[in-house]
């Protein structure tokens, strides 16, 4: 489980619609609303931080967004949250693992 706290800045006419939109998105909850400054705090829960980054990118693209940025990051002490790099990643690209010529390690 990864949790992030995201600051969202919007404008007064957009704020209510935006709160509804955000709450309807998977993994998102609007926790704090400050109407004076049109600022929201959204908590995002996601499987991986990759999904969190995607989530943030989606928020940034919503109508009525002035600013959306991460403020807080929690990652549990749990080792499973620091998995090894999936091997298929490098295969995906078809790239060699290292540019250092083979002979250097001979």
């Amino acid at each position: 489980m990864n949790l992030s706290g995201i600051l969202v800045v919007t404008t007064p006419p957009e704020i209510d619609a935006l709160i509804d939109t955000l709450n309807a998105m998977p993994g998102l909850e609007v926790h704090n609303v400050d109407r004076d400054s049109s600022k929201l705090i959204v908590v995002q829960e996601a499987e991986s931080i990759h999904d969190e980054i995607d989530g943030l990118k989606k928020i940034k693209k919503l109508p009525g967004i002035v600013l959306a940025d991460m403020v807080y990051h929690y990652f549990a002490e749990d080792e499973s949250l620091m998995p090894e790099l999936p091997e298929d990643l490098d295969e995906l690209t078809g790239m060699p693992q290292s540019v250092v010529p083979e002979y250097l390690n001979d």
């Binding site: 600051l7 600022k39 705090i41 908590v43 929690y74």
Partner: peptide, 15 residues
């Protein structure tokens, strides 16, 4: 934890 994240984030930006 979620409450904590929200509280910390809010405090961080002065809400």
């Amino acid at each position: 934890l979620k409450t904590s994240v929200a509280a910390s984030a809010a405090a961080t930006v002065g809400l």
